[in-house]
Simulated assay, not measured.
Amino acid sequence: MIGVVPAPRTVIEAFLPFEGEVGLGLVYDTANAAGVGDQPLRLAIRRMAAAGEVIQTGRGRGGSLALTGRGRERLLRDRLGLRLAFAQDAGEAPWDGCWRLLAFSVQEDERSVRDTLRRRLLDAGAAPLTPGLYVSPHDLTGMLDEPAQLIRATARELDVRGVTAPLAVAERLWPAGPIAGGYAAVEPVIAEPAADPLVQQLRLAEALERAIRDDPLIPLELRDSPWAPARIRRAWLAAWNESSDGRLYRGWLD
Results as ranks from 00 to 15, higher is better:
2 I>S: 14
3 G>E: 14
6 P>L: 05
9 R>W: 01
11 V>S: 07
11 V>F: 08
12 I>T: 13
15 F>T: 09
19 E>R: 14
24 L>I: 02
26 L>G: 05
28 Y>D: 08
31 A>Q: 07
35 G>T: 11
35 G>S: 09
37 G>W: 08
37 G>V: 14
43 L>T: 10
46 R>H: 13
53 E>G: 01
53 E>S: 04
53 E>I: 00
54 V>G: 06
54 V>L: 07
55 I>C: 13
57 T>W: 02
58 G>T: 09
60 G>T: 12
63 G>T: 01
64 S>W: 00
65 L>H: 03
65 L>G: 07
66 A>P: 11
70 R>Q: 03
73 E>T: 12
74 R>E: 14
74 R>M: 08
74 R>I: 10
75 L>V: 00
85 A>K: 07
88 Q>S: 12
89 D>T: 02
93 A>V: 04
94 P>L: 02
95 W>E: 05
96 D>R: 00
97 G>T: 00
100 R>L: 01
100 R>P: 08
106 V>P: 09
107 Q>T: 01
108 E>I: 07
109 D>R: 09
112 S>N: 05
112 S>V: 14
115 D>A: 14
116 T>S: 08
116 T>I: 03
117 L>E: 05
123 D>S: 10
125 G>T: 01
126 A>H: 01
129 L>H: 07
129 L>I: 06
129 L>Y: 13
133 L>D: 07
134 Y>V: 10
135 V>N: 11
137 P>E: 13
140 L>Y: 04
140 L>R: 07
147 P>W: 14
148 A>Y: 04
151 I>C: 06
152 R>Y: 14
152 R>L: 15
152 R>M: 15
156 R>H: 15
157 E>V: 14
159 D>C: 03
159 D>L: 06
165 A>W: 02
166 P>F: 03
167 L>V: 10
168 A>G: 10
172 R>N: 11
173 L>H: 04
174 W>L: 13
182 G>S: 14
187 E>K: 03
189 V>Q: 14
190 I>Y: 00
194 A>D: 15
194 A>H: 15
195 A>L: 09
197 P>N: 12
201 Q>V: 08
201 Q>K: 12
202 L>H: 07
203 R>E: 14
205 A>I: 13
205 A>F: 09
205 A>K: 04
205 A>Q: 13
206 E>H: 11
206 E>W: 06
207 A>Q: 06
208 L>A: 15
214 D>F: 12
216 P>D: 00
220 L>P: 00
222 L>H: 11
226 P>Y: 15
227 W>N: 03
227 W>H: 12
229 P>Q: 08
230 A>I: 03
233 R>Q: 10
234 R>P: 02
235 A>N: 14
236 W>Y: 15
240 W>H: 12
240 W>R: 07
241 N>Q: 15
243 S>N: 03
244 S>G: 09
247 R>T: 15
248 L>M: 04
252 W>F: 06
252 W>C: 10
253 L>G: 02
253 L>M: 13
